[in-house]
Nucleic acid binder design. Structure first.
Lengths: 150, 150
DNA sequence: CCTTGAGTTGAAGTTCGCTTCAAGTCGGAG
DNA sequence: CTCCGACTTGAAGCGAACTTCAACTCAAGG
C-alpha cells in the first residue's frame, strides 16, 4: 500500500475526474502516464496537480487546448515547483478579471434596459457588435457552468 | 421600400444573427414568421426585439430552451410592452449576479493559491466538490464566451 | 421573359468535452 | 490456479447551437 504511483481509478477517485475523462486528457496530451508490463497506466503523484490545474482552468473558462499549451510551458526535466504553478495561475488571472468586468458591464446595461424596456439592437450597449462579448464564429457557445450541485 | 415586415435576410442584417440561426430559432419556437404566397418567411418588427432578447440572454448564460420558456411567458394576443420585456430581463438579473459572485470567489481563491502555489485538491477551495462551481454530470461544459471580437 | 440573388427544405456535418459500449486483458486475493 | 474487479482499446454516441450542402423555388429588375 501507499505506492509511489496511482492507477487510473485511484487518480479518478482522488481528483474527482472520471477515468474516461483522464484517458481523454491523455489523448490530448494534458497528462501523462507510464505503463506497467500489462499495459496499464500508472500515474506519478505530480499528475494530481496537473489534473487540479486543468479543472481550475476550465472554471476560469479556458479550453483544453489552451490548457495543454499552458502545461507544455512548464519546465521539462524537473518536477514543477509551487512557483511554476503560481506563474501559470497568474496567467489566467487577467482572463478572469476581464470576464468579470464584461459580466458586470452586461449587468449594468441590463439594469439600464430594465429601466427603459428598450432592448433596442441599435441603441442598447447590450447588443453592440463591436463589443467583445459578441460570439465568435461557428461551433458551440462557451458559457459558464450553471450553479446547481452535481 | 420600408415595408411592414422583414425578410430573413433583412432580419439577419439588422440583428447580426445568421439566417441559418434564425431558422434554427424558429424550429425551436423562439421566433415566428408568417409566410408569403411563395412560402418565404416574413418577420414582424417585434421579432427584432425577440432576437435581441435571445442574444442578450445567451450572454447571461441562459440556454435556448430556457429562453424559449421565458419568451412563452410573454402575453399572447398583444404586442409585448417595454414593461413585459423589463420583467423578463429582471429574471436574468439574479443569474448574472450569481455568476459574477462565483467568478469573484474563483478569482480570490486563485489569488490565494498563487500565493501558496498549492493547487491542492484537498485543501484548496478552488477544488471543493461541494462548491456550486463544480460541473454537473455529462455533456458539454458550459462556459463564458471568451473575449475576442467576432 | 429572363436572369440573378435571395429564399426554401431536410439531412448531415462541426466543435467541445466528454461518456458509453463491446470485447477483451491484467492483477491481486483466496 | 481461479476468480473478479479493474483495466485496455477504438469506435460510436451525446448535447448544445449552429453551419453547410444540394437541389430547388421565389421575386424583382431590365
Amino acid at each position: 500500500m501507499h505506492e509511489a504511483t496511482l492507477t487510473i481509478g485511484q487518480l479518478a477517485d482522488r481528483s474527482g475526474v472520471a477515468p474516461s475523462a483522464l484517458r481523454y486528457y491523455e489523448r490530448l496530451g494534458l497528462i501523462h502516464a507510464v505503463r506497467t508490463g500489462g499495459n496499464q497506466r500508472r500515474y506519478a503523484r505530480t499528475e494530481l496537480r496537473r489534473v487540479a490545474f486543468i479543472r481550475i482552468s476550465q472554471q476560469v473558462g479556458v479550453s483544453l487546448e489552451e490548457i495543454r499549451a499552458a502545461l507544455d510551458s512548464l519546465p521539462s526535466g524537473r518536477t514543477p515547483t509551487p512557483d511554476d504553478w503560481a506563474a501559470l495561475s497568474r496567467a489566467w488571472r487577467d482572463r478572469l478579471d476581464e470576464r468579470i468586468r464584461l459580466l458586470g458591464k452586461l449587468r449594468d446595461d441590463l439594469d439600464g434596459c430594465i429601466g427603459c424596456g428598450c432592448l433596442s439592437l441599435q441603441r442598447c450597449t447590450l447588443y453592440n457588435p463591436g463589443d467583445s462579448l459578441a460570439a465568435e464564429g461557428p461551433g458551440p457557445r462557451l458559457m459558464l457552468p450553471r450553479p446547481g450541485q452535481g
